[in-house]
Computed example of a mutant assay.
Amino acid sequence: MADIHIEEFYRDAAIALAQLYSVFPRRINLFVEDIAGPDEPDEFGLHSKRHMACFGALLWLEEEGLIRYVDTIRQEALDQAVLTRQAFIRLSAPAPTALVDAAGVGRGEDQALPQSVRRDLSTYIHLIRESLRSGHSARISQIVQATFFADA
């Protein structure tokens, strides 16, 4: 089992990428609270470690060329965030068969679906969304790692 902060990082990255993909190519404000949950700054106005870790994950996604944004809104959000071309292509690409099979895509009743639908169900973004729905930390980590290391 990975360290909790690493599992939270993968979850935060998955949520951010899924949110941005769902509105692509439109730019949106990406709020930390929408990803990490509500946060109450302390008496000095400082955010919790969890909030700051999520904010750091968003900044890291930009540093690694997966998202772009115009500015930060304090430490609350990224202003006008959008996926980069690299991220859009990677998320839209089909995942390796072993990863898709492990996720249960292409089994049973899925075989009756048209090839184009099965292709959509095998993309990285679909696997990310399914792993988030499952809520299983190890599965989210596995899919996000595979997405980060994919050749697109």
Rank of each mutant, 00 (worst) to 15 (best):
residue 68 R to H: 05
residue 130 E to P: 04
residue 149 F to E: 11
residue 137 S to D: 12
residue 102 A to N: 03
residue 134 S to K: 14
residue 38 P to I: 09
residue 31 F to Q: 14
residue 96 P to Y: 00
residue 114 P to H: 12
residue 87 A to P: 01
residue 13 A to K: 07
residue 2 A to I: 04
residue 104 G to Y: 01
residue 113 L to M: 14
residue 125 I to W: 06
residue 124 Y to N: 11
residue 18 A to F: 04
residue 10 Y to G: 01
residue 111 Q to R: 14
residue 118 R to M: 00
residue 27 R to I: 05
residue 49 K to L: 04
residue 41 P to C: 02
residue 14 A to Q: 04
residue 35 I to G: 08
residue 116 S to A: 08
residue 103 A to Q: 11
residue 51 H to E: 06
residue 88 F to W: 15
residue 3 D to E: 11
residue 25 P to A: 04
residue 58 L to T: 08
residue 92 S to W: 09
residue 134 S to P: 05
residue 128 I to F: 07
residue 133 R to S: 07
residue 40 E to Q: 14
residue 66 L to C: 04
residue 141 S to H: 09
residue 101 D to G: 07
residue 41 P to H: 12
residue 110 D to R: 00
residue 56 G to E: 05
residue 39 D to V: 08
residue 139 R to C: 04
residue 51 H to T: 12
residue 149 F to S: 06
residue 4 I to N: 11
residue 89 I to S: 04
residue 63 E to G: 15
residue 12 D to A: 15
residue 6 I to D: 12
residue 1 M to F: 01
residue 122 S to F: 02
residue 81 A to V: 10
residue 7 E to N: 07
residue 62 E to K: 15
residue 26 R to S: 13
residue 15 I to C: 14
residue 116 S to N: 09
residue 151 D to W: 01
residue 110 D to F: 12
residue 85 R to W: 14
residue 61 L to E: 04
residue 95 A to N: 03
residue 113 L to A: 14
residue 7 E to L: 11
residue 91 L to N: 10
residue 115 Q to K: 14
residue 85 R to M: 06
residue 69 Y to V: 04
residue 4 I to R: 10
residue 62 E to W: 10
residue 129 R to K: 15
residue 70 V to T: 12
